[in-house]
Simulated assay, not measured.
Amino acid sequence: MTERKVKAIGLISGGLDSLLAAKVLQDQNIDVLGISFATPFWDCEMAVRAATEAGIPIRVVDISHEHLEIVKNPRYGYGSNMNPCIDCHGLMLRVAGRIMEEEGADFIFTGEVLGQRPMSQRRDALRSVEKLSRYEGIILRPLSAKLLPETEPEKKGLVDREKLLAIRGRSRKEQMKLAETYGLKTYATPAGGCLLTKEGFSRKLKKLLEIMPDAEVRHIEMIKSGRLCVIGDRAILFVGRNAADNKRLDTLTSSPEEIRLKVLGIPGPRGILCGGYDNDRIELAASIVAAFSDADPDDMVTVELTKEEGIETVTVKPIDRRRIDTFLVR
């Protein structure tokens, strides 16, 4: 009988470290499957392209709903913005563990480098991530393995520890040399593309969750597809910035409690009013949407309102643009 190949499931972000981790294991004739996780907060396109060019099989797994719940209430808190890195990594490893079991694989691996990121890649943080994952002892970090406790796959001889690495810190010199060795040219920049680390996006998300703690994944997409205005302490208005935003917003309204707004007869944005509102808030929302249209500031504008009970119109004067900053979250 032919001996079964060792198989590992790895987190592939599209960054250089995760690609190198996979290549180090492939050098040991280990069968690797990369997993890239889809959420509203980052794009998997680079991960898929980089892994494919590097000869690493990859699968995209959507964890949007699970991830949003963790963003709302992280056990280990946030980084400098709304990024719950430890909880996020724990979730991804937990899901990777489920895939490992389904695939009959032997262990999980990541591209984490000891000491590279101050919040999520300290020794204690790595241990916390393992506890959250529920797969303690079978998570291998090939780039820093020689600096970390021996894992079960190493103890069992599934991986040769001597062929693993001992990289630490924020310098990228060793990784860049390895990239040349493996011929890796396509990968994401070290800064990453997670929106939760961005100050402006985090301000909008924080405000959204303050007013709408039960916000859904589609509301996160609305933040990405338009301006966010806070109307009082209970209502949120999303306003498109261009034709692409308008088209996207039109696809995101599904709740009967939300109102769609559109200026009639004049080029302008779409609006979506969410949360708690009354007639005064609806009229204010219409005047804000009108202000972002091509209407003359002194003209009265007709705004179409699409509600659960049907379509109606309201005629408003565009709000003074100087007042918009009192509602707009930047």
Rank of each mutant, 00 (worst) to 15 (best):
A96Q: 09
L184P: 06
P84W: 08
L19Q: 07
R241S: 07
F107G: 07
E162W: 00
R4C: 01
G268S: 02
E136T: 14
N73V: 00
F37T: 03
S171H: 14
E174C: 00
R323F: 10
V303P: 07
I324A: 08
G15E: 11
L91D: 07
E69R: 15
S225D: 06
R330S: 15
E45P: 01
L114P: 11
E136P: 11
K247A: 11
D106P: 10
R123G: 01
L143G: 06
K317H: 00
K7C: 09
T315K: 15
V113P: 00
I56S: 04
L205C: 06
E221P: 01
S202P: 03
K185Q: 10
D245E: 13
R234M: 10
E66D: 15
S171I: 09
T302S: 12
R321V: 15
G183S: 07
R161D: 09
W42G: 06
L91G: 07
V316D: 12
H67G: 00
D87W: 04
M212N: 09
E174V: 08
A125C: 01
A51M: 10
V314Y: 03
D278K: 08
A191D: 13
L184F: 06
L114A: 06
P269F: 04
K262P: 00
D106Q: 09
K173Q: 11
E112M: 02
T197P: 11
G14K: 04
L284Q: 15
R4G: 02
P213E: 14
I223W: 02
K198M: 10
E308P: 00
E199R: 15
G77V: 03
K173M: 14
P149N: 07
G55N: 03
G271C: 11
K204G: 07
F201A: 00
E152A: 10
G79P: 12
P84Q: 08
V48I: 14
L143A: 08
R117G: 15
L328P: 09
Q175V: 02
Y76L: 03
L205S: 05
R127F: 13
H67F: 15
D299P: 04
R248T: 13
T52K: 15
E210S: 14
I99M: 11
Q121M: 11
R170D: 10
K307W: 13
M1V: 07
G79D: 08
R94T: 05
D124G: 00
L165T: 00
T326H: 12
H219R: 01
A105K: 01
I58Y: 02
V159M: 10
L164W: 02
D31C: 04
F238K: 01
R161M: 03
D325C: 08
L91E: 08
K206P: 00
A105P: 02
L91R: 07
N83Y: 09
R241F: 13
L273R: 08
F201T: 05
V60M: 10
P256D: 01
L68R: 11
P267D: 11
G14S: 11
L11F: 05
L228T: 15
L140W: 02
G104D: 06
F41S: 12
A291N: 06
D320T: 03
D87K: 05
I167V: 13
A51W: 06
A96R: 09
F109S: 05
D233M: 06
N246D: 14
I138S: 04
L273C: 08
R49V: 07
G34D: 01
I231N: 07
D214K: 15
P149T: 13
L16S: 02
T2E: 14
P40M: 12
